[in-house]
Simulated assay, not measured.
Amino acid sequence: MHLAMRAGFRCSMRGCGVLTIGPSDESAESVNSIGVASHIHAAAPGGRRYDQDMTAGARRDIRNGIWLCASHSVEIDRDEARYTPDALRGMKSDHERQIADELNSGRGFLRGSDLVAIGPDIVVFGELLGTSGREWSIRIDHFVQGDIRTLIDFIEGFQKRDPFDSYLIVNALGDGRQLASEPAWRRVGKSMELTCAVKDSFPREDARDLEATAATGPTNDFLIEGGDIATVSGVNSLPQRIKQMLSLLQGESPSNPKAGSRIKEYLDDFGDSPWLERWFKLDVIRLTCVPYHDRIFDKVYSLVPSVRYVEEVQVLPGERDGGWQKVRFRLGVEGVGP
């Protein structure tokens, strides 16, 4: 029962979240349940992901369980290669954090909603309704930054806008697109529906092919090896590249003032609020998916290379060291995977 309660009686499978319990017409006290307490490591030899080194107590422990709907409990047992123990533990942890966030923030019936950005000055709470070719539809529940007038100004001034500031970012998707033309909106009941023509996803460079760059230490100082500046390349250079771009404030570079992040701005505005991670994620997605035109070298590239989607951004509590804030990322990387 505690496993189900920690999951909010919802399926822990990413992208599902279906409610697994509700009233039955059998009697005034009856309930219907489609939830299943599934094992991460099987309880007996021959089962999926069985670990012979586990004790019997560890197999029965709540930490070896994940709450799923009936359909997804079958799916994880039919695809052991995809649903590894680490993948299931990560899924369970993410789901429980989302449930805790919902409980603390009072999102209630807006559970499927998250932050959506339309350019740099409009952020709404809404949901991706669907896509059709290069057309994306967004439901807007309410404005978090900007308002309907800001949206109309964005639409009317679209043709004069810098393409780097013309984008649609969907936090729940962990991805976004550059806009191909001005959006259109209409009122639907108490919400608004936004229709956006988008460009194709900007191609990402295989992380294994990233060129060598100067290696830096914890405070972004160059590392010296044998009297020379050390270098790092390929996948090993990606964490450093992410750190450097997020540490560069937008407007800080005289030659490329639009490059850089808004992380510091969000840290100042939202501090320890439960919204902070959502804003961080929104900006990391922007830096990965919106192509940047470097006018110095006349080159277009992604400011954070090789990242195809941003699954999670977790600000580590109590981990700030001087001017540095520690953040954990879960990313989808070109040429590597999750």
Rank of each mutant, 00 (worst) to 15 (best):
G65W: 05
D114I: 11
G226T: 05
R89L: 13
D101F: 12
L88Q: 05
H142N: 11
L103H: 06
G47M: 10
P163K: 14
S255M: 09
G335H: 03
W275Y: 10
H293M: 08
R187P: 00
L331D: 02
R63H: 12
D77N: 13
W324Y: 05
I138P: 02
R177H: 08
A56N: 07
K258A: 05
R161D: 06
G130W: 14
C69K: 09
S93N: 13
G112R: 15
N104G: 10
Q325K: 03
H41S: 06
N220M: 14
Y167H: 07
Y301I: 01
A87E: 13
A43H: 14
I148L: 15
L331A: 05
T231M: 11
D153M: 14
S24R: 13
N64Q: 06
N220G: 03
A230N: 04
G90E: 11
S273Q: 02
G57P: 02
I229G: 03
C69N: 09
L238Y: 00
I118H: 08
G133A: 11
D77A: 07
I263L: 13
Y83E: 05
P218D: 08
A43E: 15
C11L: 11
S306Y: 00
I34R: 11
M13G: 00
D77C: 07
A28Y: 11
D165T: 04
Q314V: 10
L276K: 04
V235W: 06
V333M: 11
G112P: 03
H95Q: 05
Y83G: 00
Q178F: 08
R308Q: 10
L115S: 01
T55F: 07
L110S: 11
I62D: 09
F164N: 02
R134D: 09
Q159M: 14
D200Q: 11
A44V: 07
I118T: 08
I34P: 00
G227Q: 12
W136F: 10
P257L: 04
P274V: 03
V336C: 04
F125W: 10
G35M: 08
P85E: 08
Y83Q: 04
F222T: 00
A184S: 13
C16F: 13
